[in-house]
Nucleic acid binder design. Structure first.
Lengths: 184, 184
DNA sequence: ACGCCACTATACCGATCTGTGTACTCTGGA
DNA sequence: TCCAGAGTACACAGATCGGTATAGTGGCGT
């Protein structure tokens, strides 16, 4: 990826997340990246493609971020990894404007199920569900599938609540409730 | 409200929900309502005002819908009303395209906190949190505030999961988990 | 019969949208 | 030294955006 393309993707990611996808035009993205529209279209071909790469990149970064906090010599118990997953979400959200989950927000704007971004969004959520199901199974839950779905709901709800600002610190609250669900 | 205004609001509500707010133009709204843009601007003055009235109307309808299922000679116990609240959400979602919560989706597109729609969204979520807190208190929860927040997370998570289609029937699942949280 | 009001029809405004074109400059490596 | 790729500057296309103007139609109550 060329330096200009990288700056374009960074600018697009920030603008899309903070202002919404439809509300941001390519002229603004190019200007914020210190690049002309010509460069933008030479590198990405279309705005839709920028949207796709924005989501794919965010997905990949989150995957690496979460994997780092769960894998290797990190928490040994399933409960420890579950706690680490929620803490990772909290840490991920801090530092950015509290606008909730970029995948959920993008899904609110991308209506067409055939849009390539839809698959990225669905894939990210499926992986989170799989993770929670695996953690529930490792923790010895009687019904790992059901427990995983419950953990998923708590997690998604916490991200939404964080974005909406319904009440303070929803992610730690969800984490504590999630931990209470695991068998003792 | 004149017949044209009513049709405009109905068309706008359907289009905003199914396609997103920014993706829908005033020309389309007027055309779908069988009305000219002149009428649209005579009745509402601006697109923003249509957005506000769309959300306010949906909020009011949901309020009435939920109140009908919770109030009067309906479920006598707090657990019964909690169950009814989740069932109301499920019923509310059925019949429309599975796009999740209109308030959450609108929040993804409306960035400006000063936008009058933001207050409507925040108010709706606050009322839901209050409801869940009240139900938790009535059910005899040791910490009604904390329990109410947990119920809120389950509910919001279920709406999001329903919109994203992460797994089938998330709302009944959330309902069962919510009921399990109440003291026996 | 009259006037009011909701609404239609149509043309237009300036701005912004995505996307394309040509011509030129800078920079790093072979 | 030369060349290819990355980027700049700028002009423009066609479409659509939100919003406004003028002129005319149809129904309904008084």
């Amino acid at each position: 990826m060329t330096p200009g393309a990288r700056r374009l993707l960074e600018a697009a990611a920030r603008l899309f997340y903070e202002r919404g996808i439809h509300a941001v035009g390519v002229d603004l993205i190019a200007a914020e990246a210190g690049v002309t529209k010509k460069t933008l279209y030479d590198r990405f071909g279309s705005k839709d493609q920028i949207v796709v790469e924005y989501l794919a990149d965010r997905d990949e970064r989150w995957r690496a971020f979460l994997g780092d906090r769960l894998g290797a010599a990190r928490p040994a118990t399933a409960a420890g990894r579950l706690r680490a997953a929620f803490d990772a979400s909290k840490e991920w959200m801090e530092g950015t404007s509290p606008r909730g989950c970029s995948m959920v927000n993008a899904h609110a704007e991308i209506t067409d199920p055939a849009h390539p971004a839809a698959a990225i969004i669905a894939g990210q959520k499926q992986r989170m569900l799989d993770l929670f199901t695996d953690l529930a199974r490792e923790a010895g839950a009687a019904d790992p599938g059901g427990a995983g779905r419950t953990l998923m709901l708590l997690h998604e709800g916490a991200l939404v609540a964080h974005g909406l600002g319904v009440f303070p610190d929803p992610i730690p609250h969800a984490r504590d409730q999630a931990l209470a669900l695991l068998p003792v």
